[in-house]
Nucleic acid binder design. Structure first.
Length: 553
RNA sequence: GCGCUCGUAGCUCAGCGGAUAGAGCACCGGACUUCUAAUCCGAUGGUCGCAGGUUCGAAUCCUGCCGGGCGCGCCA
C-alpha cells in the first residue's frame, strides 16, 4: 500500500463516519494526505484529518478521531490505529502491506513517480534567455539547472511543457556586440559601451579567418557581417554550452523575428482593442497602472522606435496565441521589477494574471573564494562561464549543487570548495547509492541469482527495510509537490536525505546476497526486489534533475 | 524614499500550520579478511533576526521593527 492508497482509505473511512453520524459531507476535503511521523512511536503514518475537520463540523477532534480510528481499524492491511495528542491518528500497517511497495515501484519502472497532478495543462516555460552577446556565465547557470529540472518535473506531473529561450537579438546590445567585434578585428580597443572579454577577440578572429577581406573595410560595410556572423557564432556557442550541461530548449525564440513578423504591431492592436493604449507626448503607452504596475509603460517611443517592453508584450501575446494556458517565467532577483509590468501585460491583454502568467523569482548566486566574496564583473574579467564550471566540477556536480536548494535562498558557492573538494559534493552520496545497487545486481547475476517473478513482501520487516519502503512510496507525492510548487529542489532533498540515506542504512544492516558459496536465503529475493526498487527511484529522481545515475563509481 | 526578497547550528542548506526543528561540511570517538568504507554508528553544536498577533498547535500565516541582497528609465 502506498501513502496515496492509505490517504484514500482514510478519506473513505471519514466519509463512512460522516454518513453514519449525519455530518456535513461537504466539509470533507477532495483529497487528504498522510505523513511520515518523525518519531517511530507515532506509527508508520499519521493523519491530521480529525484535527482539521473537528472544528468545521462542530465535533471535538478527539471524538472525531476516535470514530475515525474505529472505522479505519476495520480496513484491510491496517494493523492498528491510535489516537494521540489533540487528535492525531497514528496508523500502523501490516508488514506485508508496506512490503508490496517494492513491487509497485519495480513494475512501474521508469514511469514510477509520474503522476497526473498537472494533467491537461499546457505550460510555456521560459528561462535563461541570456543576451547573445557573451558566453553563458554563472549568473545564468542556476536558472539553466533549475529551469531544465522544472521542465522535467512538470512533464512528469502530466503537463505538456514547452521550454523556451528568448533571444534578445533586436536591440542595442547586439549592435554593441557587433561594434566590439569590429573594433577587435581592427586591433582597436573595445568601445566604451562595448564588450571586452577575450571571447570577443576570438570570435573576431574566427570571422576574419572566414572572410579575410573584411579587414580594413569601413564600418558601414563590415558591421552587418560582424553582426550577423558574430550573432550566429555566439548563439551556437551558447547552445553548445547548454547542451553540454544537459539543458534542453524546445524553442529558441528570436526577438527580431517578433519585430520583423509584425507581431509587435499585432500585439499593440490587441491591447488597443482591450482599451489600454494611450498616446502622450508623441509616444504610445500601455496603461499598466490599471493593473497594479507602478507606472505606465511606453510601447513606441516618440522617435518611432519600439521599446523592449513592446516586444515583451508581443512575446507574451504570441505565447498565448500558440495555445499555452500558463506562461511561466523564471527570472533572477535582479529582474523582480518585471513582475508588475509582465502581470499587467497579461491583464491588459484580457487575461487573468493569476492564472495565465506566472513569474518565478529566484535569488542570485554569490561566489566566494576561500571565504572571500568574489564580485562578478565583466569589466574585471572574473566572470565564471558555464564552460569553466563544467570543466572544474563536471555537469552532474554542477547541476546538482545548483538545483538542490530552494531558489528562494541566495546560494553561496565557494569556488575552492566546488573545484577542490568535489568529492564532498552530496551528489556523490546519491550517485554512490545507485552505483552500489548496480554493483549488487551485477554480483547477483555472477552468482547466477536472478530476481524472481515475485517475492514475499512480509519478509521485508526489518526496521530499515520498512523505512526504505515507506520512503520509496513517497516519491510520486514528492514529484507532484515539486511540480505544483515549481520547486525541483525537493527532488534532490528527497533523494539525498531520504532515499540514499535509507538505502545506505539498509545496506549496512541487511545482507542481500549470500556470502561466498552459501545458498540464497528466504531474504535474498525480497531484498533484491527492494534494491531494484531503490535503484529505480534514484534513477528516476536523478533524471528529473538532469543528473546521471552511474553504474560504477 | 518606495517596492520586492531573504534572515534556521561555526559554514552551506532542508523543513507547502502538526508531535522532541533536521542534514552535509568542520570538530571528537567508534565500525571494513564479509554484497563498493564516496558507507554506517555515536558525541558536540539552536533565544528558527527581534517584538506582537491569528489558533488546539507557528520556523511556517499576518503586522511592525532590525539586518543583508536586489529593483525603481521614452535603457536593453
Amino acid at each position: 500500500m502506498t501513502p496515496a492508497n492509505l490517504a484514500d482509505t482514510v478519506l473513505s473511512a471519514a466519509r463512512a463516519v460522516f454518513e453514519t453520524r449525519g455530518l456535513d459531507l461537504a466539509a470533507l476535503p477532495a483529497t487528504t494526505a498522510v505523513e511520515r511521523p518523525r518519531n517511530p512511536e507515532h506509527g508508520d503514518y499519521a493523519s491530521t484529518l480529525a484535527l482539521q475537520l473537528g472544528k468545521k463540523v462542530g465535533v471535538a477532534p478527539r471524538e472525531l478521531a476516535a470514530a475515525l480510528a474505529e472505522e479505519l481499524g476495520r480496513r484491510a492491511g491496517i494493523k492498528s490505529v491510535e489516537i494521540a495528542g489533540p487528535g492525531f491518528l497514528n496508523i500502523r500497517l501490516d508488514a506485508a502491506v508496506t512490503g508490496t511497495i517494492a513491487r509497485t515501484v519495480v513494475e512501474a519502472g521508469a514511469a514510477y513517480g509520474r503522476n497526473s497532478k498537472l494533467a491537461g495543462q499546457r505550460i510555456n516555460l521560459e528561462f535563461v534567455s541570456a543576451n547573445p552577446t557573451g558566453p553563458i556565465h554563472l549568473g545564468h547557470t542556476r536558472w539553466a539547472a533549475v529551469g531544465d529540472s522544472l521542465r522535467r518535473v512538470l512533464t512528469a506531473a502530466g503537463a505538456e511543457v514547452t521550454s523556451e529561450y528568448y533571444i534578445n537579438d533586436a536591440g542595442a546590445q547586439v549592435d554593441r556586440f557587433a561594434r566590439s567585434l569590429y573594433a577587435a578585428a581592427n586591433g582597436q580597443p573595445a568601445p566604451d559601451d562595448g564588450y571586452g572579454g577575450d571571447y570577443i577577440g576570438e570570435i573576431a578572429q574566427q570571422i576574419l579567418g572566414e572572410e579575410p577581406e573584411l579587414a580594413g573595410r569601413p564600418a558601414q560595410d563590415a558591421l552587418p557581417v560582424f553582426w550577423a556572423r558574430g550573432y550566429q557564432l555566439m548563439l551556437s556557442e551558447i547552445r553548445q554550452s547548454l547542451e553540454r550541461f544537459g539543458v534542453h530548449f524546445d524553442v529558441w525564440f528570436s526577438e527580431k523575428d517578433l519585430h520583423d513578423g509584425g507581431s509587435v504591431e499585432h500585439a499593440i492592436d490587441t491591447l488597443r482593442k482591450q482599451g489600454h493604449i494611450f498616446e502622450h507626448e508623441g509616444a504610445i503607452w500601455l496603461r499598466t497602472t490599471d493593473f497594479g504596475d507602478d507606472k505606465d509603460r511606453v510601447l513606441i517611443r516618440s522617435n518611432g522606435e519600439k521599446t523592449y517592453f513592446a516586444a515583451d508584450a508581443a512575446y507574451y501575446i504570441n505565447k498565448r496565441e500558440r495555445g499555452f494556458d500558463r506562461c511561466v517565467y523564471l527570472l533572477g532577483a535582479d529582474h523582480h521589477g518585471y513582475i508588475g509590468r509582465l502581470k499587467a501585460i497579461a491583464a491588459c491583454a484580457g487575461d487573468d494574471p493569476g492564472q495565465n502568467i506566472e513569474i518565478l523569482i529566484g535569488q542570485l548566486v554569490n561566489l566566494v573564494r576561500g571565504g572571500q566574496p568574489v564580485r562578478l564583473s565583466k569589466r574585471a574579467g572574473n566572470i565564471i562561464t558555464l564552460d569553466e564550471l563544467l570543466e572544474a566540477v563536471g555537469a552532474d556536480a554542477a547541476r546538482y549543487s545548483l538545483a538542490r536548494s530552494s531558489t528562494d535562498s541566495t546560494l553561496t558557492l565557494d569556488i575552492e570548495e566546488i573545484t577542490r573538494h568535489s568529492s564532498d559534493n552530496p551528489v556523490f552520496y546519491v550517485q554512490y547509492a545507485h552505483a552500489r545497487i548496480a554493483s549488487l545486481l551485477r554480483n547477483a547475476a555472477e552468482k547466477g541469482i536472478a530476481r524472481a517473478g515475485d517475492y514475499d513482501p512480509a519478509l521485508l520487516s526489518h526496521e530499515r527495510e520498512k523505512n526504505l519502503l515507506k520512503t520509496l512510496g513517497e516519491f510520486p507525492a514528492v514529484v507532484a509537490t515539486a511540480a505544483e510548487l515549481r520547486e525541483p529542489h525537493r527532488i534532490a532533498v528527497y533523494l539525498e536525505e531520504r532515499v540514499a540515506t535509507d538505502y545506505h542504512r539498509f545496506y549496512d544492516a541487511c545482507q542481500v546476497l549470500p556470502r561466498g558459496d552459501e545458498a540464497p536465503t528466504e531474504f535474498t529475493q525480497p531484498r533484491l526486489w527492494l534494491a531494484e526498487a531503490t535503484r529505480t527511484v534514484i534513477a528516476n529522481g536523478l533524471d528529473l534533475l538532469g543528473v546521471s545515475a552511474p553504474e560504477r563509481m
